[in-house]
Design a binder for these strands. Structure first.
Length: 791
RNA sequence: GCGAGAGUGGCGGAACUGGCAGACGCGCUGGACUUAGAAUCCAGUGAGUUUUAAAAGCUCGUGAGGGUUCAAAUCCCUCCUCUCGCACCA
């Protein structure tokens, strides 16, 4: 009987003692950078979803190592940030004290036990000074390059976390961390100008080997939309209103303008006698939460400002309205309303009795008609096609200009929290906003017990006089420090660069090693970071590229987003009490079983359904493997060798395409054949162990050692030498008569059509359908199928 | 509403480029071992149907309906359902 506890303990300690998986970063000839998303130590331990991700990534790394690559598989801890901090606040501890403890548990009780080929010598912890010094360095570099800016803006405020958040961290109007309803606030915040990179972030996607889903999520988040800006003069005022439209061809159908309630000129535009109405209107809008405000089904409300704009082409007078369906954040916050050809404008115009003017040819009853078509009622452009007009917009009028708009907004990076890198900026009355000189980094996060966010809009550090008061690096006069910390996603936006030289105190990363090892060859992780970490990392990499620090502009050559685990057909959640704690299975089933089952239970890229019955079955499977490994040695049958030839191919194909479940299935099939034998060849059993080793490392190592192998099995090379068995294999060719399956004939591989036809005629079953009839046509797909058409 | 993906036995899921549907596993049924159970092992297992029975065969079958093809889970059209992403984006 296989004693998994003993074997796993033995190999865990061997992995710990020997540097099997320490990559020689300098000397390596075939570098392969296998990256997984480092965890944040924010809870009582890694959950099964983390394990799923890490193991799935490790299977790939192990496979590549077996294939002879120098695989570098580093790991670290995303230890700064709101998740670790919230956890600390929850349990009433100081993150300074709690985080190292969490890390220790994550590392020693979990990560070191799951059999991954981590190179522990390269561990990176984002909350350590050696690391965040360089996070701050990046901030300073971006600031100097004009890519970081502090500005007033409407931002997302989480009342529970008491900080602002980036757009990407608001999910369905709620805080990504704590699920609290987000409020919009007008505040001065630090932004990274990621929108400058919108087009590159979008265009590069086509060149990346990433899972399509992930690319699609990024595409729609960037949300490029082509259109035009149209400028309207306000009648009797020295004001211009700029609007964005994707349908400049409907310009002659504009019958009014609508502004967002937050629009910058509303004060000027709202007439004296409408001020009161305006104030109560704004109050009503503010009462709505984000979800209600943006609900499509809600009826649209608005009010007339009393002012008019001038149509740039016709000179007509257009009433200017304020409408709660216009968003301040998108486009210019002002819309040229074309009720005949836009559903929202149509609804609004109907409600308030505004003019509806048709300018695209269609059935009059079909309004609003949103399709493009032939322009009508458009003066000299009547008869033009929409597309032609859109193309020529720039020539029509000085007031119209082709423009591109994005859904993507600049990245709000300041956080009114404690547990993060202080933003390295100093405010001086004389010199203004001054970055901390690079040689003075890091700006140390002071260790203090006064770290609880108070919701005032200022970070806890603002209460720390010693920290706040400083001298200006430029003029030496007294100055004040920025007290916000930067977003945790900035920490993780460059950690993959740090991994190659984690202990370098001179620079953020070693350029020579970066050139050798990056971009990352394979990155496997969850899709929940598609708009977050994966977008930010691309941006930071591009920015560092433009600043001359990197030769490449895309950090991850290949990315595979995997699916989620469910339990017995249901979503796992603490409230349902159906969560799975991976550690529970270490003693009952063993790590090998857990790994193998997680990879077997479903398609890794789509997720899977975790069931205890499957764990039991996998345990049975590995016991069978053990029994076969312990069969008497002796020559194996040709049949089994042919089976092994197939298995090697199937496992390679499956792992390379991240179809881990079918790789395991192929090994099971092989086992089902092997149990029929009385003895087994050493080579066969060693190769079996190799194929199994990405999934069940410990039993595979043990088998390898038992059969005389030294060190780790991953250094012993991929199974080879089976080509010749594929040649001698016979195959069954299915035979159809008139397209219906009627039988099979057994022939040698590569048999010709005549041979198969002859066999078919000689086959009792098939002959019935052929005899006495005319064969009109024979379709033969070599080694696959024959279809005989008879009459 | 828009975009993407998916829908296959009692269940999780296979099926590479259009070429044997249901690999592999769970569950279930029967059997072996056992005083008994657990564990383990062996056999069977899409539905319907023909035959006394077995062997063997036939028909149907991949969300629904149509089409292309010698051949469709796979390609095309229409529709339904689910999941994910975005969403009053002008």
């Amino acid at each position: 009987m296989y004693d998994f506890k003993k074997v796993e303990r033995k190999w865990m300690s061997k992995y710990e003692k020997n540097d099997y998986f320490k990559a020689n970063l300098d000397k390596s000839n075939k570098p392969f950078y296998n990256l997984m998303m480092f965890p944040y130590p924010s809870a009582s331990g890694l959950h099964i979803g983390n394990m799923y991700s890490f193991i799935g990534s490790d299977v790939y790394g192990r496979y590549m190592k077996l294939r002879g690559y120098d695989v570098y598989e580093p790991i670290g801890f995303d230890a700064f940030g709101i998740h670790s901090e919230n956890y600390a606040l929850n349990v009433g501890k100081n993150p300074f004290e709690l985080t190292p403890k969490s890390i220790k548990y994550f590392r020693d009780e979990q990560l070191k036990k799951i059999g991954n080929i981590f190179d522990w010598s390269s561990e990176v912890i984002t909350s350590s000074q050696d690391y965040y010094k360089w996070t701050q360095w990046i901030f300073v570099k971006l600031f100097k390059a004009g890519l970081a800016e502090k500005r007033d803006s409407t931002v997302n405020w989480c009342p529970s976390c008491k900080t602002v958040l980036a757009d990407e961290q608001v999910i369905d109007g709620k805080c990504e961390r704590c699920d609290t309803e987000i409020q919009k606030k007008e505040m001065s915040q630090w932004f990274f100008k990621i929108t400058k990179y919108a087009d590159r972030l979008l265009d590069n996607l086509d060149k990346l080997d990433w899972t399509e889903v992930t690319k699609n999520i990024q595409k729609s988040w960037i949300g490029r939309s082509e259109g035009a800006t149209v400028v309207f003069h306000v009648k009797d005022m020295d004001l211009e209103i700029e609007t964005f439209t994707t349908r400049p061809d409907t310009i002659y159908g504009v019958t009014y303008l609508v502004l967002a309630p937050e629009y910058k000129y509303t004060k000027e535009l709202v007439a004296e006698d409408r001020r009161e109405e305006f104030i109560s209107f704004i109050e009503r809008v503010n009462k709505m939460d984000e979800a209600e405000r943006t609900s499509i089904t809600r009826s649209k409300n608005g009010m007339f400002t009393g002012s008019f704009a001038i149509h740039p082409l016709t000179g007509e007078r257009l009433p200017i309205w304020i409408g709660d369906y216009v968003l301040a954040e998108y486009g210019t916050g002002a819309v040229m309303a074309v009720p005949a050809h836009d559903e929202r404008d149509y609804d609004f115009a109907q409600k308030y009795g505004l003019e509806i003017k048709q300018v695209i040819d269609c059935d009059k009853d079909g309004l609003p008609h949103t399709e493009k078509g032939k322009m009508i009622n458009s003066e000299e452009y009547t008869g033009w096609k929409s597309e032609d007009f859109i193309e020529k917009v720039d020539e029509v009028s000085d007031y119209m200009k082709k423009t591109v708009n994005y859904h993507l907004h600049d990245w709000c990076v300041s956080r009114q929290r404690y547990w993060g890198p202080p933003i390295p900026i100093v405010y001086c009355d004389k010199c203004g906003t001054v970055p901390v000189p690079e040689e003075e980094l890091p700006v140390e996060l002071p260790q203090t017990d006064d770290f609880i966010p108070d919701g005032s809009g200022l970070a806890p550090l603002a209460r720390n006089e010693d920290f706040v008061n400083t001298t200006c690096p430029k003029c030496g006069g007294s100055a004040k420090r920025e007290t916000d910390v930067s977003d945790n996603f900035l920490d993780s936006a460059w950690y993959f660069l740090r991994y190659v030289s984690p202990n370098d105190i001179e620079k953020p990363f070693d350029s020579k090693l970066v050139r050798k090892w990056l971009p990352v060859d394979m990155y496997i992780g969850g899709n929940e970071h598609a708009n977050l970490h994966l977008m930010y990392s691309r941006f930071i990499t591009m920015a560092l590229h433009d600043l001359g620090y990197l030769l490449f502009e895309e950090p991850f050559k290949s990315f595979r987003g995997h699916g989620l685990i469910i339990k017995d057909g249901q979503k796992m959640s603490k409230s349902k009490g159906n969560t799975v704690n991976p550690n529970d299975y270490f003693d009952t089933h063993g790590v090998d079983v857990l790994r193998t089952y997680l990879m077997f239970m479903g398609n890794f890229l789509e997720g899977g359904d975790f069931r205890d019955s499957g764990m039991d079955a996998t345990k049975r499977f590995l016991n069978r493997v053990w029994d076969i490994a312990n069969m008497p040695e002796g020559e194996s049958s040709i049949n089994l060798k042919i089976k092994m030839a197939e298995t090697v191919d199937k496992v390679s194909y499956s792992i390379e395409n991240i179809k881990y479940n079918t790789a395991v299935a192929a090994i099971m099939e092989f086992i089902n054949e092997a149990v029929k034998e009385k003895h087994i060849e050493k080579k066969i059993i060693l190769d079996l162990a190799k194929l199994l080793s990405p999934f069940a490392p410990f039993i595979s190592e043990e088998i390898n050692e038992m059969k005389g192998g030294k060190g780790t099995i991953l250094d012993s090379g991929f199974p080879e030498g089976y080509e010749k068995y594929k040649e001698i294999a016979t195959i069954e060719v299915p035979v159809q008569i008139n397209g219906k399956m009627r039988g099979k004939v057994e022939v040698n591989k590569d048999a010709g059509q005549e041979k198969i036809l002859e066999e078919a005629k000689g086959d009792k079953r098939l002959a019935r359908y052929i005899e006495g009839r005319n064969i009109r046509k024979v379709i033969y797909i070599k080694d696959k199928i024959m279809n005989i058409i008879v009459k």
